[in-house]
Every structure is written in structure tokens, then in C-alpha cells.
Design a protein around this nucleic acid. Structure first.
Lengths: 125, 125
DNA sequence: ATAATATATTCCGAATATTGAATAAGGCAA
DNA sequence: TTGCCTTATTCAATATTCGGAATATATTAT
């Protein structure tokens, strides 16, 4: 029974749209500071931070401080197949109930919209 | 944003140890009546029924009545890879925090412990 | 019709999750 | 030090989920 409890806890950590989107951003960005996630997901800082805390507790992301910024990354990059299967399955379920599920692409953010060192660097180039 | 909400709802449906075990039984049994699940998971009938209702609402299982019995089956057999990835990931996360995750095998049930037609049939053989 | 059996549903208190608002904490620069 | 910036945490109100107990429903047999 213990093992299934762990799986359930993992599912719980994933059972939130913002957290799913954070993970998806980290799949493509490899590393992102909170201000970046703020900009990409269009959510308040405190809110993003709360969700990051849950992902941290679940062991899904790791953080690294660099000056004022804290950069987050996937703790376990091979979570991608799980997320992929989840999306695929959600699409299949939606289709079964008669409609096409679309994933609005997560907003891109041009380097001048974020002030972290990494983005400043890109702007300078 | 709508698509991720759907994925989150799917994750929510999976975020429960009993529901995960029900799905796992249905992966191997193909079809099982409630009394069967009762026996295999060692849970009260009403409780099993409640969890089945959640799985039904989520569109993950379908039911078919045969006399007094109601047989459940996976609505979407290709949910297996998702469940497999979830288990794999849970194992990986546990390992990261320093211990081996074990899945206690779900109790087998000899045909004479269940009274549904299907089991009676097996007993008769 | 009544009884028996299998399954489903409803009700409810307890525990947990969500999310906005306010505040705290940590690091850097002058 | 003071002030500023980025991020984290706490608090509180609301909503959701959990799981037990009791009850309801559907089917079959008598």
C-alpha cells in the first residue's frame, strides 16, 4: 500500500494547472528564475513561489541561488515522458467525450521583459 | 490554460492509492465486478463503489451490468503507459531521497472467495 | 408481493488544498 | 548602516476531498 501512496502523492503534486505549466517551461528552458516564470505564466510572484514550494516539497524541482535570483530546474529531467503521457491521455479522454483539447502555448517572453542577469545578458548581445 | 486544467483533473483522479490499485487490477483482469475488487483490495463495498464513481466521472472506467453484478473495465486501455511512468517516477523520486520504493503485490483471490458468475464458473471447472 | 443480493448514493464531520493579501527574509549597493 | 530588489513564508477565508455510516436502488428468485 505504501508504494501506491507515493504515486498518489506524485499525482497530487502534478494536479494543478500552474504547476504543470511551470514544469513544462522548465522542460524547454532548462533553468528559469522566478521573475522569468512570473513573466511567462502571467501570475503574481507570491503565487508562483507558493507553487514552486509544492514542487520542491515533492522533489520535482531544485533551486540554485545566483545573487538576488533563484534559478529553478527540473530535479528529475526524465519526468518528461510522464508529463507527455498525461497530456496524451487528457487529449484522448476529451476526444472520447466529443471535443478536441488544445494546449494554449505558454507565452514566450522577450529578454527585455525580464531583469535577471541571464536576460540582461541576452539583451546585451 | 484550459488544456492544463484538464490534465490536472486527470492527475487528480489518479491521486489516490485505492483508485490506482483499482486501475492496476483492471489492467490485468480486463474486467472485474465490484465484489472482486472488494476481495482483491480488502476494502468495504461502499468505499470501492465511491472510488469507482470518481473513476467513472473522470472517464477512466466503464461499467456493464450482468444480472446482479456490474463489471468494470478500463475505458481507455492505453492508460497503461501513464500509470507505468507514474510508478517509475515515484520510484526514482524515492531513490533520490534515499530509499527503495516497493509496491506490495495486490492480493490474488481464489475463485471460491468471490460469488460472481465469472468466479462460480471457474470454481465449476 | 417479499426477500435476498450486489451495487450506488447521500450525508456529514474532519482533514487538506487553494489563493489572495500582507509580511518576512536574504542579498546587494551606496 | 539604509534602502532596494528578488523571493519566500505566513495568515486567513473558502473550497474540495476523504472516508465512515446509513440508506437507496436495481435485479433476481421465491
Amino acid at each position: 500500500m505504501k508504494g501506491y501512496k507515493r504515486v498518489a502523492d506524485l499525482m497530487k503534486a502534478l494536479a494543478h494547472p500552474i504547476r504543470l505549466q511551470i514544469l513544462e517551461v522548465l522542460e524547454t528552458e532548462a533553468e528559469a528564475c522566478v521573475c522569468h516564470l512570473e513573466a511567462r505564466l502571467g501570475q503574481r510572484q507570491a503565487y508562483i513561489s507558493q507553487q514552486l514550494a509544492k514542487l520542491r516539497e515533492a522533489g520535482l524541482v531544485v533551486d540554485r541561488r545566483d545573487g538576488l535570483n533563484i534559478f529553478y530546474a527540473l530535479a528529475q529531467p526524465d519526468i518528461e515522458p510522464l508529463l507527455g503521457e498525461a497530456k496524451r491521455m487528457a487529449v484522448a479522454l476529451a476526444r472520447t467525450s466529443g471535443f478536441e483539447l488544445v494546449f494554449a502555448p505558454i507565452r514566450e517572453v522577450s529578454p527585455d521583459q525580464c531583469h535577471c542577469p541571464k536576460c540582461e545578458q541576452k539583451v546585451a548581445v
